[in-house]
């Protein structure tokens, strides 16, 4: 294993993030606060409880998941897309580092950043509502699994995209809407029966449901299914990345 290579990529990516650390931290804190003002104070005053949990506390796992997905995807996709855009990717391709090691470096850094932001949102949420975590180990497990999985997805996106527009289109037009429609701010049991069935085709439902279960033991779908679908998506991303590096898709001519 080229651990020095992995460390170099990881530290390089974290340093890039560190240069805009204030912005990286302040933005999610402000966003979270705004969500609590809008959803917690305005809407929450009309919906007092969902599944026995105050509405303000109910939306916390969904908020964390929303930030986790978007930050994981954007950090990982930018991390690999920017050297491709700048042409500096030649160095990675000519280095004695395997695809697995390079992926650990880039995805590890992206996942670390999004986990830190997820934890910051959790702490910020505690300033507005009382957050209970019934299964802290499972909460951590879901946090890590989701961050790693969607960082892998972002990594694929960063390799697939050949312009800035494509880089932004998937998070903006697909992931964010799926997260909003995946039960971030409501329980799917609140939907009409037909839409409950339609919603089950949204993979983000399983992520949010499993994560929320670790907080309040409330779940829209069985926890095992949440875990299985997340793990399945992770394996699928790994297979795609393996194929990308084996064939050199969008990397090697």
């Amino acid at each position: 294993m080229n651990w020095y290579g992995v460390r170099a990529i990881y530290r390089f990516e974290m340093a890039r993030w560190g240069r805009t650390f204030g912005q990286s931290i302040v933005a999610p804190v402000i966003s979270t606060s705004l969500y609590f003002v809008v959803f917690g104070a305005a809407i929450g005053s009309r919906i007092t409880e969902v599944d026995g949990v105050s509405y303000g506390a109910f939306i916390v796992p969904g908020l964390i998941m929303l930030m986790l997905l978007t930050e994981s995807i954007s950090n990982a996709s930018f991390g690999i897309y920017f050297p491709r855009y700048a042409g500096a990717i030649y160095e990675l391709l000519s280095a004695p580092i395997s695809s697995f090691e390079a992926t650990i470096g880039y995805v590890g850094a992206a996942a670390t950043k999004s986990i830190i932001i997820g934890l910051i949102i959790l702490v910020t949420s505690n300033l507005f509502v009382d957050v209970t975590i019934m299964h802290p180990y499972w909460m951590i497990a879901f946090l890590f699994l989701t961050a790693i999985t969607f960082s892998l997805f972002g990594f694929i996106l960063g390799i697939w995209a050949d312009n800035w527009e494509k880089l932004g289109v998937v998070p903006t037009l697909i992931v964010t809407p799926l997260t909003f429609l995946g039960g971030s701010f409501y329980s799917i049991s609140m939907l009409p029966e037909f839409w409950q069935k339609v919603t089950l085709f949204n993979p983000v439902v399983y992520l949010i449901s499993g994560f929320r279960w670790s907080f309040y033991e409330n779940a829209d779908v069985p926890v095992g299914l949440s875990l299985g679908i997340t793990a399945g998506f992770l394996v699928a991303c790994l297979v795609v990345i393996g194929w990308i590096f084996r064939t050199g898709y969008r990397l090697r001519a």
Partner: peptide, 27 residues
Amino acid sequence: LVPQELLTETFESVSSTTAFSRGLFGK
């Protein structure tokens, strides 16, 4: 390898990008 084009991460410092290259090559 020194490529033909001036391809590098423009926002890095000289020392950090050089140290990065050393690490990337397993040193």
